[in-house]
Simulated assay, not measured.
Amino acid sequence: MKIFIAGASGAIGSHLVSQLVARGHEVVGTTRSAAKTGALRALGAEPVVVDALDPDSVADVVAKAEPEVIVHQLTALGGPPDFRHAKRMAAATNRLRTEGTDHLLAAARAVGVRRFVAQSNAMWMERAGAPVADENGRIEPNPPADAAEAVAALRHLEAAVTGISWADGIALRYGGFYGPGTGLSAAPDAVMTEQVRRRKFPIVGGGGGVWSLVHITDAASATVAAIERGRRGIYHVADDDPAPVREWLPVLARAVGAKPPRRVPAWLVRLVAGEGPVDLMTRTPGISSEKIKRELGWTPRYPTWRTGFVEGLK
């Protein structure tokens, strides 16, 4: 198939391009930076530079590509781990999940795309639901005020994509990424790994938030499965071992040669960083990926972070 990947130079994009090309697909991949076109070309994709928030530019590049499938992996996440940059990246990502989604959907409809696959996120599943949620679970209806825009953007993306009638609209709720090209890897510039090594990624409160994690190559292979044979709706994508922060974070610290993480009272983090981070570290439920395994035959290479942290960070 001819596949158009919006956000092909991002954390999951490069892995996705490689896997799709290896399976014989023709890939057109977008980037915001002309400096990244060479890397995309080396992976086997046809690179295009586009501003995803410009509807005319998006319509033009999609019309020229004439893809059968569009994959929406646009975010603005990455960069220095300071509060000012984090706020800016979050705001930009929210626009990409709202305006960017709408622009891509309009362009997709105009050229007759038959499948549209988009990146969602499982970190904001409903807090009052099951400890491990399946796809029947919903996005948290009453998030903290400082997370409301981000959660609303996820809700917009999922509703817009799965609500189309002219193609199979698929939203993938990914767990937390780790592995090469992500902020949690063995690379010297990996932001989250550096925070762990400097003991700036603490266990907040009781550390009871249940995180579902997924190695980046497994996230990409699940996306390939959705591209090739997915059906309209939502699929969860994570490993088989959801676990509270207090359990997986010390294991991660050992894996990257760091001292054990600090423990910080929730009230202090709430005072410094807001309610949203506290909520993520203390109340997040995990997710089950049984649906995508059952329906699409997906099998993760790293079914648990316990081996993934040891074998898959490089």
Rank of each mutant, 00 (worst) to 15 (best):
I170K: 02
A171D: 03
L213G: 04
R197Q: 13
D279V: 09
G286P: 11
T162H: 09
A118D: 03
D239A: 03
T98R: 15
L16R: 00
H72N: 14
A145R: 14
V210P: 05
T223I: 01
V237T: 07
H215L: 06
M123N: 14
P188Y: 12
G230I: 00
P141D: 10
K293V: 04
G129S: 15
L268N: 04
F177S: 00
A122Y: 05
G112E: 11
M192E: 09
S288V: 10
I170A: 05
A159W: 05
A159K: 11
A108N: 11
E275P: 08
S288P: 04
D241K: 09
G79C: 10
A52S: 12
H72R: 02
G10M: 08
G312R: 00
M89R: 15
V21C: 06
G44H: 11
E99W: 04
R198K: 14
A133G: 13
A59T: 09
P285K: 12
T37M: 12
V272G: 10
A133I: 14
E68M: 08
A219V: 01
V58H: 06
E158L: 08
M192S: 11
V251R: 13
I287P: 01
K87I: 10
V310H: 08
A159R: 15
H236L: 09
L172I: 10
R97M: 13
R263G: 01
V214R: 00
L20E: 00
R270I: 05
T299R: 08
G29R: 04
R270V: 07
V278R: 02
P277L: 05
V204H: 00
G312M: 01
M1E: 12
I12S: 12
D168M: 04
R254W: 02
P141A: 11
V310S: 13
E290R: 12
G297H: 09
A118F: 08
Y178W: 11
A150K: 07
H72S: 10
P141T: 08
W211H: 11
R229Y: 01
P277D: 10
V27M: 07
F83Q: 15
N94M: 13
T101W: 11
N142T: 15
G206I: 05
L296A: 07
G100R: 02
N121R: 03
V264L: 10
N121Q: 09
P242Q: 13
A226R: 02
H15C: 01
T98I: 14
A92D: 14
E275Y: 04
A130T: 09
G7I: 05
T217I: 08
A118E: 06
D218S: 01
T75Y: 07
G179W: 01
A253T: 02
M123F: 10
W166A: 11
P285F: 07
L313G: 03
G7L: 11
A128S: 15
A167H: 07
A238E: 03
A108H: 09
R232D: 01
R197C: 05
G7C: 09
W124K: 01
R173T: 07
A167E: 08
H215V: 05
V264S: 06
F309W: 05
D82H: 13
D146A: 06
F83G: 06
R270A: 14
I70F: 03
V71T: 04
G100T: 02
G183Y: 04
G286C: 12
V256F: 05
P81I: 01
A273Q: 15
A186V: 02
R41Q: 15
W124P: 00
